[in-house]
Amino acid sequence: MSCLMKLSNLMIKRGASTLLSGLSCAFNEGEIVVVLGPNGAGKSSLLLALAGLIPASGDLELHGKTLTGYSRHALTRLIAWQGELPPTEFGLTVKQRLELAAGEEIDAVASTATRMDIGSLLQRPLGELSSGERQRTELAALMLRQTPIWLLDEPTAHLDLKHQIHCINMMKEECKQGRAIVTVLHDIQQAMAVADHLILIDGKGGAEYGEAKQLFASERLTKLFDAPVITQGTVLVPDYGVMK
């Protein structure tokens, strides 16, 4: 597996405070890296920095060349980013939104929409969709970007159970095609289902990177989230207390 992106001593700041520092890791073809951490720790900021959308210090190499050496346009051919839901005030339809992402791959819009279960919504304005439908639209927009690296910020947010599973399976399939995926997730079981590697961001400036099977441990996650995480069989789950 070849390395697509490499970070050394990455540091991201928000205003005067340091969100995370000293992160070193590599993103390889056909691997999924899951970013975990509490709210406000800097997970989304990490993805934005990897996409070149906010500044970061340290070494950030893409295909052996520093990230800042790429033009904005060149980066769009290498990295696709899925983040917050876009605004809906101006009446863009699902089809128009997908076509903006598709660029030259415009023929793939209908089939990708069908794959994400929004084929019947193509002519609807984004503002008339539910949050889950809008999230599936964003995922379809990402899928139309045939870039080697995908950055996904909470891809299963707003989705019902069926589409959460669909999204997780889609990530696995895309990974098998050789894509490198870095994704922020909040659900530990979803993370365990897809992660080859983990980045744990503690919200105090620290970040840890390693193989998923080594880092998935109840004590480590309990400390990370400052909330009880227990082992049930072979999986880690949040401890919600006594079931009703």
Partner: peptide, 8 residues
């Protein structure tokens, strides 16, 4: 789509 999406 918003500034971030446009930039991306």
């Amino acid at each position: 789509l918003g500034e971030r999406h446009a930039e991306a």
